[in-house]
Design a protein around this nucleic acid. Structure first.
Lengths: 186, 186
DNA sequence: TTAATCATGTAACACGTTACATGATTGC
DNA sequence: GCAATCATGTAACGTGTTACATGATTAA
């Protein structure tokens, strides 16, 4: 998956591993987190597969850099990946795994836990979406406004996801509060 | 993560790898998919870590089985995992990765793609949530009704997620249709 | 006789995480 | 003098996927 994300970025134009790391942080971290070390490793694989070539550029006052350029074979692979049909609807949520087993702890501990998550959710929202990218910013990275639309869609997804998350947390807290009051009323 | 999920199940009572595979399919597949091979491998690690012991039971008419029992150390590890504090809000979505780069394809191809996902979403919903578990079913696996509440929460999450997904898809289709009509109107 | 259920895995590979390593330049 | 930016990675480990392997019993 990461390989193809990198390939997609290289398709916008030649760039270094360092550039890719930063674009990931700025534009794709809504839905994907990539480690620097992994990006450099995947670049090696991409090169080995013949999907990109690299060229070392000597700079003065700055360290040398390696500029990667996508090949035709890389562009074909990008297209293959985009058009292959697979179901991508599966959800894999560490949070749900923990939720499933939270009956091991007390109701109060869990209310506290979910409240903490609400706060984290707010902080996350603030960091990510307080100032969502404007059309111009999308265009700054991607010259084609049509392409920028798909970027915008991913941001919208992130915002919807975060909102849904918040609702779920509040619903959990409500259910636990109710249970607590029922029990105390017995 | 899977290790701790297995540990959580073993905490409900001793069971075999085979049992665990089936409980995963029935009750945790809403938010986690585990391969049989991985479950057997994780069981080895769990045993090696001293979190569970195993005992071979000879059966007649059926193959031998290995029953795993959680140890005190395993229960401590389960509790440690449940109470550790880490942010689990990150999203990692292969679907968004593909969406981000869909500008490489035509608007019509993408409308078709999102429509296909709507259908898949419907099929998924039908399979998963047409007949959501009833309180009694929750209780059948987990004797404690309090514990069953957390199971119910994970099912609710799955349903909310699926609904949000559907809304996002429809929103994408709407935006693409609008763009298409704008362009044709020029 | 064929499929489903019961029951266990191994091997190889792919992908993600964590910790560590290096070192110059630039701005406060 | 210190932090940030630029720029590259390696090594070890942990987790997830795919393909393959075995073989008895039971119900339709």
């Amino acid at each position: 998956m990461l390989k193809h994300g990198i390939l997609g970025l290289l398709n916008y134009g030649s760039m270094t591993g360092y550039d890719i790391v930063h674009i990931f942080k700025k534009s794709l971290s809504y839905f994907w987190q990539a480690q620097t070390s992994q990006i450099y490793r995947e670049l090696q694989t991409i090169k080995k597969n013949g999907w990109a070539t690299d060229q070392t550029v000597v700079q003065d006052g700055k360290p040398d850099k390696k500029v990667f350029t996508i090949t035709e074979s890389g562009q074909n692979e990008l297209k293959r990946w985009l058009t292959e049909d697979r179901v991508e609807l599966e959800l894999r949520s560490p949070l749900m795994m923990k939720t499933f087993f939270r009956g091991e702890l007390s109701i109060d501990e869990n209310i506290e836990y979910f409240n903490r998550l609400v706060k984290e959710n707010e902080a996350f929202d603030y960091k990510m979406y307080a100032d969502p990218p404007e059309t111009e910013q999308y265009a700054a990275l991607i010259s084609d406004p049509l392409k920028a639309l798909y970027w915008k869609m991913t941001v919208e997804y992130g915002m919807m996801y975060s909102k849904m998350h918040r609702q779920w947390l509040e619903n959990c807290i409500r259910q636990l509060e109710e249970l607590k009051h029922e029990n105390s009323g017995d």
